[in-house]
Design a protein around this nucleic acid. Structure first.
Lengths: 121, 121
DNA sequence: TTGTTAATTAACTACTTAGTTAAGTATAAG
DNA sequence: CTTATACTTAACTAAGTAGTTAATTAACAA
């Protein structure tokens, strides 16, 4: 994968992995703890792989404790993703009227929707 | 893809697509406008595919204007992703000391980690 | 009608991802 | 030493993703 942000988003693009993060947000857990809700749907090696994806994305840290592998969340990696999203907040939070105003200021005057506007060449 | 959130994150897990959203955050643009920065790296059909991914994720809307396809951002789809992230904010915003405190309260006390534990090979 | 521009579709290839089963490693416990 | 537990690695498969080139559609322009 090319860049950090892409790796982070890709890691989040799976409900199993998001559920694992949710669990870890309540504290440390071993691999088998994390696996337990999913063992009807997938095997333990599949779980190991999901954890590896989270680990490579820097979203969790796995340590050693005898034969257990306690994992903890490392949400700093989420910060970059959240920061990236932040720049789009205006698009879903502002009212449509104000968004329209904003677009006019950054684009000059488009928004008429006549056929001559979108034409660039 | 299974669920909306997964589709959204997957769509964002690509720098080309994120750059297209960034461009669209400044106003409408046609496919060829969006393609222009990438035509050294990829073909137009590849761009079409990226846009289709964004469209299926609900992140953009493509309309028709003669032979052009003006696209606009539709960041409401980002809101769900941002809301999901919001629940983890505490993990990167709180000071390390307070986070550590918090983790202790939810996990009991683990963390002994003496050298006799990690014996390897 | 002929040609040009804008964009999509089709068919294909290479790579990645998500899962599997079976075998292996490491630690603890009897 | 043997066995059980916790987890990983290896080898494989099926499906999905990202790109290609070539052909096609649609609207406009001459």
């Amino acid at each position: 994968m090319q860049d950090n942000l892409s790796t982070t988003f890709a890691a989040l693009a799976d409900p199993t992995r998001r559920a694992m993060l949710a669990k870890l947000s309540q504290g440390e857990a071993n691999v088998s703890d994390l696996a337990q809700p999913f063992l009807k749907e997938m095997s333990l090696p599949a779980v190991t792989k999901h954890l590896k994806v989270l680990e490579k994305a820097g979203l969790i840290t796995k340590t050693r404790e005898a034969q257990w592998r306690p994992c903890k969340i490392n949400a700093e990696a989420l910060k970059d993703a959240a920061d990236w999203m932040e720049q789009y907040r205006v698009f879903w939070e502002e009212s449509f009227d104000r968004l329209d105003e904003y677009l006019k200021t950054v684009t000059g005057n488009k928004k008429k929707k006549g056929k001559t506007n979108v034409r660039k060449k």
